[in-house]
């Protein structure tokens, strides 16, 4: 399995990426998740946010 660099993952998931400075992350775990999530997966969920923001 090709391990992508963390910034690829943040850019893929988070609408407002803040990075991971100061925290330990498992690139293997994050890469495994990314390989299983659909391409259009985003955080936060825009539909829910449209109800409360």
């Amino acid at each position: 399995m090709e391990l992508k660099v963390p910034s690829d993952l943040y850019n893929a998931w988070f609408l407002y990426p803040a990075g991971s400075s100061g925290m330990a992350v498992s690139y293997f775990v994050l890469n495994t998740i990314m390989e299983n999530l659909p391409d259009n997966y985003v955080i936060p969920d825009p539909k829910v946010m449209s109800w409360i923001e």
Binding site: M23, P44, I52
Partner: peptide
């Protein structure tokens, strides 16, 4: 716990005042 700190940090930095207030 392997992803929660990452999720929280990214949500905390987002412009979501109502979410942050609840």
């Amino acid at each position: 716990d392997s992803v929660l700190p990452l999720i929280r940090q990214n949500l905390a930095g987002a412009p979501l005042p109502q979410l942050h207030g609840c």
